[in-house]
């Protein structure tokens, strides 16, 4: 399995000054890999806005592979309005390069648009972690991420671009390269049925 292609440069890293969306079982992995890229560029803190009742949380020992845990700030909110208010404030300010927003219900157009405008004002990348089928129409891109089993690799994922406001959609098989600390895109050719390295 040789990394041959890469994700299109206009999609990845996610465009700054916009709010994106990700869903699916590997959404957290997608989001934290974005954090990793942001961390490398800016060297600043990241903010994760999450509802306080959600017991599932990033595990610092595993998180260390992507970003240093002490650089992740976590804002715990009691209700969805607070989540959105905090996210808007952080996006608008621009002192954090990356804001991760964990939402629990579909955002209406007004809320999505407000986040979008805030991100634009601050030049910040926003990423909403949404439950399945609860996206907002205002999102710049919408991704669906799922882990894929592969016989010789333990980090293979399928990233599908479901919606793209300024371009085409697509799907990529990616894997995390532990040695190089980077994301490798698995050549689509090698994934074709009958190819040498069919995952699964």
């Amino acid at each position: 399995m040789t990394p041959t292609t890469s994700l299109p440069a206009d999609l990845f890293p996610l465009r700054a000054g916009r709010v994106h969306e990700v869903t699916g079982p590997a959404a957290a992995a997608f989001a934290l890999i974005q954090c990793h890229r942001g961390a490398r560029v800016e060297g600043a803190a990241m903010l994760w806005v999450r509802p306080s009742w959600n017991a599932a949380i990033a595990f610092p020992q595993g998180l260390a592979a992507l970003i240093a845990p002490e650089r992740l700030l976590i804002a715990e909110t009691a209700q969805e309005t607070d989540t959105l208010a905090v996210a808007e404030e952080a996006l608008k300010d621009g002192s954090l390069p990356f804001v991760l927003i964990q939402t629990t219900r579909p955002l209406n157009l007004r809320e999505g648009r407000r986040l979008q405008l805030a991100a634009q004002a601050g030049g910040t990348t926003g990423l909403c972690l949404t439950p399945q089928d609860m996206g907002s129409n205002a999102a710049q891109t919408r991704w669906h991420c799922a882990p894929v089993f592969s016989a010789e690799d333990s980090t293979l994922m399928l990233w599908e671009l479901k919606k793209n406001k300024s371009g085409t959609s697509g799907a990529w098989h990616v894997r995390w390269n532990w040695q190089a600390h980077r994301l490798d895109v698995v050549s689509p050719a090698s994934l074709r049925p009958g190819g040498p390295d069919l995952p699964g």
Binding site: I57, A58, F59, Q61, A65, P69, W178
Partner: peptide, 16 residues
Amino acid sequence: APDPAPIRPDRPLTLF
């Protein structure tokens, strides 16, 4: 201070 702990592929990314 940054924690120089080694990266552990045997630890999960999320915990519940």
